[in-house]
Every structure is written in structure tokens, then in C-alpha cells.
Write a protein that binds this DNA or RNA. Sequence first.
DNA 1: TTATATGTTCTTGT
DNA 2: TACAAGAACATATA
Length: 252
Amino acid sequence: MPELPDVECFRRYAKVSLGRRIGEVSINKNRVLRISESTLRSHLLGNKFTSAGRHGKYMFMRISDGYELVLHFGMTGYLSYGEEIPEHSVFSLEMAGKRLSFVCVRKLGKAEVIKDRDGYIKKKGLGPDALSVNRGEFVRRMRDKRGSIKGAFMDQGVMAGVGNIYSDEVFYQAGVHPKRETGKIEDLDGLYRMMIKVIKTAIKAGADPAKIPENYLLRRREEGAGCGICGGKIRKTRINGRGVYYCPKHQK
DNA sequence: TTATATGTTCTTGT
DNA sequence: TACAAGAACATATA
């Protein structure tokens, strides 16, 4: 689930916690938390978050002590703000009676505290954020990629934020076959514009599948489903080990 | 029971 | 060597 639009919605959601003093830190230490419990506690306890940022699928919460809490949600992570500590919570921060919790069911997420965001992004080898990259930069970075366009979109080093679900969506909306060789795509401009449009639409819908437009592929990711664009039938294939859905009738 | 799943990262192969 | 593809990772669900 958590690709760029989802993480952007988490970021906005987390704004309720800005400026509130963290009164209690509850931790369930596991592989998701990459730093010691005492380090996390020393950065958070008694301090507050001053801003919430995002780069690709990574979220950065600036702490009043000058450091940043980095969250990555893996495949099944999310934030929860409420009275209770949810099951599978990695840590939960109490603020004025409510709790902001980082929940990670399949433990493929990451949480750590860093000093230098740009350095961290560089160390991770992330490309520019998919929503901030401009058209020229996008084309330049795509142009000399080998392999399928699907692989290029999923490569976080080319640009960060687009994953399996939303790359499928861009190709579906743009009528491009996901196995097309990147270098042989003549209309990279069109693909860029569609990517921005799809991401913005998803964010506006709160990244909630029920609020995503009905004719989106997201609403019909199953073999044999009716295409919402041309009346074809949705097919499933495999690219780079991932399940890819597309409509063979209008995606060329 | 086995296969599959949105994520990254490490390993393998070209 | 560089880069693309595949496997591994943890756990829930069909």
C-alpha cells in the first residue's frame, strides 16, 4: 500500500501531532526500529515535532532537538492517532492523552533518527521525488535506462515514490504496455504528465481505493476484470518478480 | 498447505 | 564494472 500518495496522506495525517509535547514513549523493539530504545526515547521524550516532510516513500518528522525521525512503511505500515496502542505498534507517542503510533504488521518498515536528511537520501541512493521532479529531469533520467518501463518506474534511484500499484496505474491511463522497452518509448512527456496527474488524483482521494475514480485500474486489480477505459479484459503478468495488471487491448 | 502480497536490499547473472 | 533481474526478508490472508 504505502507508495508516494499513501505516505503523503500519512504526512498530512501526522500534522495533528505537530507542536505537542511528547509525554510518554512506548516501544515494542523489533527489527523495524533500527536504533536502540534509549536513543529513540532520548530524542522524543519531552520534545515535540516541528514539521513533517516526505521524499518518495520516506517520511521525515523534524524533532525540536534538531534531529529527524525517519519512517519507512514497508508493505504494511501505517500511522494511527487515537486513544489506544494498536497491535503491531513499533512505538507509540503519547501527547495530551492521545497517541501517535507507528504500526508495522509485516515488519518490513524502518524507523530511525538522523541528523542530515539530504545525506540520508543520498546514502539511500534515492532519485528526486516523483511529485517534485520536473519534466526535463524525468526525461533525462528515463532516457538512458535499459529494460522495461515498468522496471524504470519502480527504480527508486531514477525517481522516488512510485511503486507497483501506481506505476501500473500510470501505464494503464497512458495506454502504454508495462513491458515496453524504456528506450523505445517516444512519448516520455506524456508519461510524465500522466504520472503527475495520477499521483495528484490519488492524493486528493486520500489514497483511499474507495475514493479513487471508478475507471482506475486500482479499483479492478484482478484477472478478467472489465477494463474501465476500453471494455477489454484485465490481465495479470509478472515483471521483475512483481504481479503486474494491465489491459492488453488498449495498452500497447 | 501453498502461493501471494503494496516495500527495500542483497545477490546473481549478463 | 555496471546494471537489471531475482531472491530474501516477516507475516497475514486467500
